[in-house]
Design a protein around this nucleic acid. Sequence first.
DNA 1: CCACATCGTTGCGTCAGGCGCAACACTGTT
DNA 2: AACAGTGTTGCGCCTGACGCAACGATGTGG
Lengths: 260, 260
Amino acid sequence: MPKRENNSGTAIQTIRRACSILKCFTEENPELGVTTISQKTGIHKSSTSRILSSLQNEGFVEQNAQSSKYRLGLGLVSLAGLVLERLELRDVAQPIIQKLARITQETINISVLKEDESVNIENINSPQPIQHIGLLGRRTPLHCTSTGKIFLAYMTKDERQGLLDETLKSYTQYTVTDRKALEEDLEKIRRQGYAVAHQEFKEGLSAVAAPLFDHNGMVIATISISGPTYRMKKDKIETYLPYLLETSEEISSKLGYSKL
Amino acid sequence: MPKRENNSGTAIQTIRRACSILKCFTEENPELGVTTISQKTGIHKSSTSRILSSLQNEGFVEQNAQSSKYRLGLGLVSLAGLVLERLELRDVAQPIIQKLARITQETINISVLKEDESVNIENINSPQPIQHIGLLGRRTPLHCTSTGKIFLAYMTKDERQGLLDETLKSYTQYTVTDRKALEEDLEKIRRQGYAVAHQEFKEGLSAVAAPLFDHNGMVIATISISGPTYRMKKDKIETYLPYLLETSEEISSKLGYSKL
DNA sequence: CCACATCGTTGCGTCAGGCGCAACACTGTT
DNA sequence: AACAGTGTTGCGCCTGACGCAACGATGTGG
């Protein structure tokens, strides 16, 4: 048997396998067949079938009755709900950002830093039906998102070095891949207290983000407004900014932060 | 080795074990130690430790650096996000219910039926900080919640028989445990097109719910307003009702439902 | 301040349980 | 009707997950 199928170190294989199967499902491929999964993961078809069947018993995946393809199950939502509940931040922030959502009519996200990515833990989607940008739980890179740059800007240079890859991956023609240019951008973000990103991660997508501080003055999360680039021009962003900063300050102060 | 640790049939033990470990975590006990989990599940301490370690590699659990206790991880949120995204209903409903949340200032939930429980797939919490009633992913019983009674009311009697236990479990002194009384309640709910529950599931908790129909005229979900009983008196509910029904009709029509 | 209790982790040898193989039932296509 | 595709399932082999016990770390009470 091949020693390492996808990832790290010492762990129970069955669990590693089960997880790698779960991770096959994406936004683009929400339903997958046994054979496809088997190919993607390199796990034998029979094992794949058995693992899926086990996961189904637990409600982690469901099987489409007609196509007999599998998809992720509601059991995951229950567990994830507990994770989200643990984050007091979310309780505090939710009512407050509703006002911001109403004013801007754009998508609002709250994200936390998890390893070398930021993870959305709360989102209110824009009522304007363009594209769903604010998927709950979505992970995005740090160096090319407004949210991520906030995290980078408010950590020490050493921490930053540890998290960023050698070469900054380019996602669009606007992605900043030069280390020095990024550092300058971060310096500017620290000065002004917010971060902007235009199409640095995805074409046609723009966002503004501000930091959320806890009682220790640490940045524990970010709040961001995002929307299609054509709606998020400079003047529009300048209109939103005071509301964004007001909101972030209100949440931070409820988390026990004082500016002193 | 004992044949059945907790649940059904033929499945890979490691996965069943891993899942039963994950399911140890609750709202009341969000952080657990290896020994505690081992006792709860009946799995040997060493195996428990190894399984947790594997799950940690996958981001499904995290370990508190100080106490070295475990808690559920953000990796689950990413997967659950994909589940929620799959439900087009959620995209459609989210912008619409924001208006309802603003008007009522109470907690709004959207739930779907999953086996013999209803599962919250979307919630907007009340800005009034009393208690968090609308946990995402929370599962609630059918016969004593406004949401659940909607599902029961709009299914056939046979389906209902299949889902309800022999004896209706009593959660509070107000829980309807008499089969006949429940049927009468459901009949009333069908007539008026909404369901009310006062403290039937939890003391001090009240809610009103209405059905959401898809293009086939099937009830696929419910929308509910919930809050503390002292705020949800009869007159208050009557004030909310037209807004609730208007909202549910708006969502249903966007799902392709027409009243004809 | 040390003995003790309790925590979570880890080598080790064993054997149960997960594995790959191949045959299977089933569906939809040529 | 033959076929290529799906997902599922006995079967027997052998690997890999298991329980045991020892370990280091932590903290607690005498």
